Simulated assay, not measured.
Amino acid sequence: MGSMRGSSISSWALLVAKALEAGGHDSEDVFRRAGLDPAKLKDADARYPIEGMRRLWRLAVQVTGDPYFGLKAAGFWHPTTMHALGYSWMASDSLRDALIRMTRYGRLVTTVAEMTLEEFDDHFAFKIHSLITRSQTPNEAIDAGLATLVSMCRMSYGDDFHPLRVVTQRPKFDDPAPYIEYFHAPVEFSASDNILYFSKDSLEAHLLTANPRLARVSDRVVTQYLAQFDKGSTAIRVRAKLIDLLSAGNVTQKDVADSLHMSLRTLQRKLSEERTSYKELLDETRRELANQYLRQASLSVSEVTYLLGFSEPSNFARAFKRWTGSTPSEFRAAA
């Protein structure tokens, strides 16, 4: 199934295979030349090493002679391209929620990029920061990453979705027109990072595809996958345990440490090294689940209280007010 260290999920490489085949090229031959086993494309949990993915992107451009190959590959995106994260995305309440999921679980797709979403007074900035050197990152992979994210936004929001601005590390094309046309936005080339700027209205609008139950189930699959394969991230493993254990009642830090077969002190140290804490993870997980549960009319506020491991509705109401500024009932009425 492959290691998480310096890797991408195999379904991300499937975009390359489909784009090659659509152009009349033998994708299996290209994969083998890149040192990648094409059979792994049929294993949803498999991963490819980053070195092989780098060779694959560059070979694909050589074979096709298409400098815009990354954009072509993005056109084959499907929710399964990102395992269960694709379904979490499609079921999100808003594009803001979807992008927050991407920042949290993006390691499922690739372990060599860090994604962040920053809010400003009148816009949002979604940054994809590479954790490897610029020379190790194929331009086509950057193109595909940015274009796929915009394609995902359009699939959820509508074809009229456009970013405000695109900033990319890739050098300017001889003819940048197809690139600019794809994004329908101004593009800055040869930048120090990769950033998509979005309007607040577009990211905060409620999505017709929102499905809290599906989002919750998909999030659980994502966290289980990461907990199994991303052994280096204690925070991911703690989040997965919290999702599993919260409905059984109040979950203590010691409960989680015991379930992960480590001492309380070791758990605290590992989380501190990842710049987080048990309290922060517990709050984040409860807040996310609360937002999903309260959008399900079939669940009463009392039921949501106990599903989140609170002993009393009043305790849940206080916590929810602290998280959102509104009571659970006010939130449900406005949803």
Rank of each mutant, 00 (worst) to 15 (best):
residue 198 F to T: 11
residue 192 S to I: 12
residue 145 G to R: 13
residue 197 Y to D: 10
residue 210 A to L: 00
residue 213 R to W: 05
residue 164 L to I: 13
residue 177 A to Y: 12
residue 203 L to A: 06
residue 211 N to F: 11
residue 137 T to Y: 11
residue 139 N to F: 01
residue 213 R to H: 08
residue 186 P to S: 01
residue 152 M to K: 01
residue 188 E to S: 09
residue 185 A to T: 00
residue 187 V to D: 02
residue 170 R to N: 03
residue 134 R to I: 12
residue 173 F to A: 13
residue 223 T to R: 10
residue 222 V to F: 10
residue 167 V to S: 02
residue 218 S to R: 07
residue 158 G to Y: 10
residue 193 D to I: 06
residue 206 H to D: 06
residue 213 R to Y: 07
residue 183 F to H: 00
residue 130 S to Q: 12
residue 194 N to G: 09
residue 149 L to Q: 13
residue 156 S to W: 08
residue 221 V to Y: 15
residue 195 I to H: 09
residue 143 D to S: 03
residue 191 A to L: 09
residue 137 T to S: 06
residue 164 L to A: 05
residue 148 T to E: 09
residue 216 R to Y: 11
residue 168 T to I: 06
residue 196 L to T: 04
residue 150 V to M: 07
residue 165 R to Y: 12
residue 137 T to K: 08
residue 214 L to R: 08
residue 170 R to W: 13
residue 165 R to Q: 11
residue 144 A to T: 08
residue 181 E to I: 01
residue 177 A to I: 05
residue 210 A to W: 10
residue 181 E to A: 14
residue 163 P to T: 05
residue 181 E to L: 11
residue 132 I to A: 04
residue 147 A to D: 05
residue 169 Q to W: 03
residue 130 S to T: 10
residue 205 A to C: 03
residue 201 D to I: 11
residue 214 L to H: 08
residue 142 I to R: 08
residue 157 Y to A: 13
residue 155 M to V: 10
residue 147 A to P: 02
residue 174 D to G: 10
residue 218 S to I: 01
residue 222 V to Q: 09
residue 147 A to L: 05
residue 194 N to V: 03
residue 152 M to Q: 11
residue 127 K to C: 15
residue 139 N to T: 03
residue 135 S to W: 12
residue 152 M to C: 15
residue 214 L to Y: 01
residue 189 F to T: 05
residue 125 A to H: 02
residue 129 H to G: 04
residue 179 Y to D: 13
residue 159 D to Y: 05
residue 155 M to G: 02
residue 168 T to G: 08
residue 173 F to D: 10
residue 189 F to R: 04
residue 181 E to M: 07
residue 207 L to N: 02
residue 144 A to D: 05
residue 169 Q to L: 09
residue 143 D to C: 01
residue 216 R to E: 14
residue 143 D to R: 05
residue 196 L to Q: 07
residue 191 A to E: 13
residue 213 R to M: 06
residue 212 P to C: 05
residue 183 F to A: 02
residue 180 I to D: 06
residue 183 F to C: 03
residue 214 L to Q: 11
residue 181 E to S: 13
residue 129 H to Y: 12
residue 184 H to I: 00
residue 165 R to E: 11
